[in-house]
Structure formats: C-alpha cells, structure tokens
Amino acid sequence: MSAVLKTVNLVKIYQDGAIPVPAVRGVDLQVEPGEFVAIMGPSGSGKSTLVHMLGGLDARTSGEIWLDGKRVDTLSESAWALLRRKKVGFVFQFFNLVANMTVGDNVELPALLAGVSPKVARERRESLLGALDLTDRADAAPAQLSGGEQQRVALARALANQPSLLLADEPTGNLDSRNTRDVLRLLGKVHKEGQSIVMVTHDARVAALADRVVSLFDGEVVDDGRIARRRRGTAGEVIDLR
C-alpha cells in the first residue's frame, strides 16, 4: 500500500526583509497508513512550519508534497481548503475551538462542511461526543471546559470526517499533566484504530506513543527511527532496570 504522506526535498524559506530565513531545508518524509510519527526538535527547528506545510496552511518554497498518492503542493489556497475538509484533520496547541459556538456545534461543523446531511452530521456528533464522554457538555461554550476537555473536543472535531491524516501541532503544549494524560489516552486509542498521525511535540511522553520519531534540527531531519518497545513487568521491575 502506498504512503499516506510523502514529501520530497521540502523547503520553506521566509523572507525577513531582504534576508532569506530558511525554516525547513529539504525534508524527505514518508508516512505509511496507520503510522504514528512524532516530530521532535528544539524550538526554531522548523517543526511547526513543516506540519503547517503538510496541511497546506503555509505555502512551501520548493519541493513536493504527496497526499494519498496525489501531488498537493501545487494546489491553490482554495483547493487546499477543499482537500482539508475530507483528508486532513488539524489539532493545535491552543485548541482553536470556535469560541462562539457550542461544543456540539464545533464538532458538527466539519461534517456539515464536508457535505454530510444534517442528520448524519448530528449522528456523528453524538457518537463522537459519546466516545469523548462529553455528551452532557454538548451545549457548553468551549471556554467553560478545562483545557484537556477542549483539546479532546478539538481532536474530535479534527477526526469528524475520518481524515486520511491527522496533523497535530503541540497538542499537549498548553495542558497540565493530568489533562495531557486524557489527551494521550485518546490519541493512543485513535492510533490503535488505524489513524495515521503526524504530530509535532516537545513532550517525550506524547512522542513515546508514536511508532517513529523524526528529529528535526535547524530545518533538517537529523534522526528518523522507530521506537523500540521491550520491557514488560511491574513498576518496580521496569524502573529498577534502568
């Protein structure tokens, strides 16, 4: 089966006045279906820029992006938008729920946007909220929810249209450890169900959920490898072994 996502020599250069500032310099990346890739690296290493480009939120300077076997880096802004509706889900650090809409509406919006009938959209909303254990908060405003709950809603919204690819930019960057655990559990769950995920993170606990870690440094990939899983045992054993 072909890769969900493939980039070839992807480059992004910002113009700061007359000085070109390279943010991403030639990234080759391939994500297989169902794979969970974590992108790590110090701040300023270009990880956010990379993931924004993968979702078409930012235009690439050169290089190629292939999504589901189709070349997408040449798409216009509008075409990208149409593509995102069905193929790409986004989760951000600051949740980015539409502040004025209720939690339920936030989850329902992408389904409506993708052209699903209002009835189906309503059903999908119910099932997603049910899975998140947020059914009773459906009519609350996002601001009334805790950070973790908001991020879970954002995740539900990103997954509403069963996208080929879930892109996440520091999804736990703004959460405390308890909320992080909630979001992690959910991410792990959708990954087990076969969702392909590319996630930028700083948080080793989140990254450790991934199948693969890609380390960026100064806009380049410096390491790309699978995370080995070996040990089993009780807390005392695992930790003592260290």
Partner: peptide
C-alpha cells in the same frame, strides 16, 4: 482572526 484561521484550517476557502 483566530476563529477565522480555525475555520480555514477546517477547510473554508478564502472566498467562503
């Protein structure tokens, strides 16, 4: 602006 950006990331086009 933030909400608009969010809508765009969800797939609203500029014209929309």
């Amino acid at each position: 602006l933030r909400d608009l950006a969010t809508l765009k990331s969800m797939g609203f086009t500029r014209g929309q």
